[in-house]
Structure formats: C-alpha cells, structure tokens
Amino acid sequence: MIERSQEAVSFPYYDLVPLGDLHLTLDRVAFESDLTPEHLRAINAAATLACREISPFSITVDSLGGTPGAIGFSASPARPIVHLRDTLREATLSVYPDARIKNSELHPHVTIAYCNSSNVPAEKVVAAVENLSMLSCTDIWVKESSLVLLEQRPRAYAWHEIFRIPLGDVDSTENL
C-alpha cells in the first residue's frame, strides 16, 4: 500500500519518506540542546510507568490525503492515539515541566511524502490521490511507543530511537 502510493506521488516536487522512517508522531518534548541524559532517563521511566495502564490497541491506516506541505494516510480511531499522546505528555511534564509541548490538536497520520516546492500543480496531486482512494486499509497493532531524537532535514525528518516504551503490563503482553 505505502510503496504503491509513493510511486503514484513520486513527482519532482515531493520527497518520499524512506520506508524505514515512516512513523506516527505524537508529540515533541524538547530540542536536543535542552535535554540532558538524566532528563531522558527520567522521561523514559515516567512514561514506562504511565504506559503500563494503557493496553495495546489496534489502529487502521487508510484514507490518503494531503496538506500544503505533505501527503499521508490518516490513522484511526483517534481516541486511543490521543489517549496515548496525553499519557506520554503528562508523564513527561511530571519529570520535565519545561518540555516544549505544543497545545495543538492531534490529527493522527503517517506522512509518506513532503513537499519540496511552492509551485505544486494541485490537479496532478489530486488526481494521483484520487486514483489511490481504493487501496485497502492496513490494521496495525500498537503495543509500544518510542522516544526518539528527531532531526529536521530540508523537506524531511529523520529519527533515531532512544527508548522503547511498552504499553500494558510487560509480563502479560510478551506473547502478543
């Protein structure tokens, strides 16, 4: 589904997200220069403890669409994703009150391409997205979250995982 969609929108005015870098962003904690290794360990410990109360859940990735800066798939239902984001946010703020958390509404999505031009012929993009509207959706089992170091690059993001934060009671979910 993702590869076929990226092929259809591989216009010169979009930079495709490498398959290994696809992700669903929940929140931003801070800029790298703001955090010490102790902050990161404290955030990881608080988030790990808080996420024990959240059971793994299923989401559906479907409905390809776009914004002026990107093309991606919607992820739903939003409620468990927002709950996970809010839990991680509260855990972070409990140990790092200076976190640069944005008070913005979360529209869960997985971006597959970022725009690299202001002269995008909208009719081509709309036609490509409409041709892909019949792609089947993909269900994904969410059983962990990751704390990552996010690097903004020209027209893209790259990330490096620092910690994995399991959902639910780790002992009871090992066989899922």
Rank of each mutant, 00 (worst) to 15 (best):
M1N: 12
I2H: 01
S5D: 03
V9P: 02
Y13L: 04
Y14F: 12
V17P: 00
D21K: 10
L22G: 02
D27S: 14
T36S: 13
E38R: 13
H39S: 15
H39E: 08
R41G: 11
I43Y: 05
A50P: 00
A50D: 03
I54W: 02
I54R: 11
P56Y: 08
F57W: 12
I59N: 03
T60W: 03
V61Q: 12
L64M: 05
L64Y: 01
G66Q: 12
P68D: 02
G72K: 04
F73D: 02
F73P: 01
P77W: 09
I81H: 01
L84N: 01
R89N: 08
T92A: 10
S94L: 10
Y96E: 08
Y96V: 07
P97C: 06
D98T: 08
I101R: 00
N103K: 13
P108F: 07
H109N: 10
H109S: 08
T111R: 02
C115G: 14
S118F: 11
N119T: 10
V120L: 07
P121L: 09
E123F: 12
K124W: 10
V129T: 05
V129L: 10
N131S: 14
S133W: 04
L135T: 06
S136A: 12
C137Q: 15
T138Y: 05
T138W: 11
W141K: 05
V142Q: 10
L150T: 03
L150H: 00
R153Y: 00
P154R: 01
A156F: 00
A156L: 07
Y157L: 00
I162M: 14
I165W: 01
I165Y: 04
P166K: 07
D169I: 07
V170N: 10
T173M: 12
E174Q: 14
E174S: 15
